[in-house]
Design a protein around this nucleic acid. Structure first.
Lengths: 122, 122
DNA sequence: CAGGATCCTTTACGATACTG
DNA sequence: CAGTATCGTAAAGGATCCTG
């Protein structure tokens, strides 16, 4: 009878894993963090503004990702009364609750780059 | 001449975006956070242990993701001197630097669930 | 036990053209 | 301007079988 590795599979831990999955699925894809980051920097941007700022993205992806984010209340979309019509996207109050997470990602990434540079000099 | 939205595209900001991309690409895919989370909870797990703990994953994905993580120094792999051979996977010291990020993901996900529940009762 | 090889499905993503 | 529609490619992921 072999030993079985026992890890912490308490309810708390299951909830944690589920939470991580939730977060990941909401922020999944290549562009969401970029879009959110951009909107956090510069509040109120038009579709074309985002297309320019989020380097490399196309209209299809931008449109789709914005819809996802809007559905999850992370960004708001306002159609302006102009002609031709313009739209203003901005981050919601709720979307701003992602700032600590985004900051952590940026922080870790920066430290990662640094550790790569350090490792090169040996 | 139309107004152009000006956002913060300073070098600092570019670096930040790049850092976020780096982090994402290292932790990309459906399973990396799960594997890391599991290894942080229960240090020293065999391949089969992980296969059991990371619910839903198959051998191919597990194997591939572990290799990715090992390549980035986030987990270590030790072949034991047994027969048949067994392997011990564990999180590295460097891998543990991801804890704050993982914690943030879990935290946000939990709050997200709660906000969904709250929104339901209106 | 640990994992590679193979085959297959599905999803993500991208380029381009078009519309109110 | 702000998208949608269409088409095509590539990558991700999964099921199953096989081997040292």
């Amino acid at each position: 009878m072999r030993k079985k590795a026992v890890i912490n599979n308490s309810p708390v831990c299951q909830v944690r894993m589920q939470a991580i999955s939730d977060t990941m699925s909401i922020l999944s894809g290549k562009w969401k963090f970029h879009i959110l980051g951009t909107l956090i920097e510069g509040d109120k941007l038009g579709f074309m503004d985002l297309l320019r700022e989020v380097k490399g993205i196309g209209t299809k992806m931008l449109s789709k990702e914005l819809q996802d984010l809007e559905m999850n209340q992370l960004v708001s979309r306002t159609v302006m009364n102009t002609k031709p019509i313009t739209v203003e996207y901005s981050i919601t109050k709720y979307g701003k609750t992602l700032s600590p997470l985004i900051d952590e990602m940026a922080k870790w990434g920066i430290e990662y780059r640094q550790s790569m540079i350090d490792a090169e000099r040996d």
